[in-house]
Design a protein around this nucleic acid. Structure first.
Lengths: 191, 191
DNA sequence: AAGTTCGGCAAACACTTGTTTACTGAATGG
DNA sequence: CCATTCAGTAAACAAGTGTTTGCCGAACTT
């Protein structure tokens, strides 16, 4: 049933999804839906959780494994690109519903992105470059990285669906931007 | 009729909007809708144009007027915050439909954001800090700024609607991030 | 003054929708 | 072996949907 919903959300958004539509796609009767969810919003929240499991795995695989800043940047962009390709429906769902019409879902996504930023912040604190950084500065940097990751993922998504030739250019741009941020980071002093 | 649509899109998204719904809100008969638009998608595109007029004004008011990097950053964040407050429905519409379910609208928004980036890039090229920058580097910097502006605007939007106390913190974070980017910019050498 | 466009209406068409109800078979547990 | 939960069904309900059609008055053009 989650799969059916996710499939329909390829070119629709949650608020315009119908109970009957979902059950039809899943090959079930309309009433069957209510055996599993009270609402369509509930189905949405379930999809958020499903989507973020894979995201957490991804972020760890970026932060783990050492290497200089350059290697880390390259690996990050590669991982994002591959993740979007391999989990397109989930990523699309997140991009679409992050500012979508269903409050519960919006809040679930935002809360989880916040946890992401915290995780990234903790990882940044361990790097030598961050010696002497205040909590606030670390947090703002982590948020900058997360926002950048989200934007990049969304750009990959759109490119993969409409014009795959644009993909390398997006990757190149993202790498340059990360390099610039990392440069600013090295010269940062006090908030 | 545009106003009626915009008002309904406060807690709905375009794909789940109905012709009858719009005309009812506007105090007209359903058939009247088709006198003005063939589709709901067309109404969406019209709203995009309406929304971006005010945005263009905003961006010029940031780029105009000289001043050091610090003043420019402060003014940019202020202008964004005020713009979101004064054009909330339009901004919400853009955030929601940027990755929404209606292809035509998505494309219209993306095209316009691209033009934004070009405009910002041209303005950046005039600043002394950008001497020796390649076209590609300027473009990626402009995109970074535009993406950051979009993220910040979305954050303001959510904060203003759910918990206005968070607003100053968002502004502070955005300023720090812009400062860090501007730092990276000063130390940039060659792509 | 005659004609034409413009923006509006009511009514009708055939569907689709969310949700509830009462019912059914299969698995599960004591 | 009996009871209970589980996951499913069909049928019905009232209400809402997109779109077309034919009609109408006002405003503009010539």
């Amino acid at each position: 049933m989650l799969d059916a919903g996710l499939h329909l959300l390829a070119d629709q958004n949650l608020a315009s999804l119908g109970v009957r539509e979902v059950t039809r796609e899943a090959g079930l009767s309309p009433a069957a839906f209510y055996r599993h969810f009270p609402d369509l919003a509930a189905l949405g929240v379930a999809l958020v959780e499903e989507s973020l499991a894979s995201l957490h795995v991804m972020i760890r695989s970026v932060l783990a494994g050492a290497g200089g800043a350059e290697e880390l940047i390259d690996r990050a962009v590669d991982v994002i690109e591959r993740h979007v390709r391999e989990h397109r429906p989930h990523v699309r769902f997140l991009a679409r519903e992050r500012h979508g019409g269903v409050r519960q879902v919006r809040e679930a996504i935002d809360a989880e992105l916040g946890r992401f930023a915290a995780e990234v912040g903790a990882a940044l604190a361990l790097q030598p470059v961050s010696r002497g950084w205040s909590e606030e500065d670390l947090r703002m940097l982590a948020e900058l990285y997360v926002d950048h990751m989200v934007s990049t993922a969304a750009a990959f998504l759109e490119a993969q669906e409409t014009d795959p030739d644009r993909e390398p250019r997006i990757a190149a741009t993202a790498r340059l931007q990360l390099r610039l941020i990392s440069l600013g980071r090295r010269h940062w002093q006090g908030g």
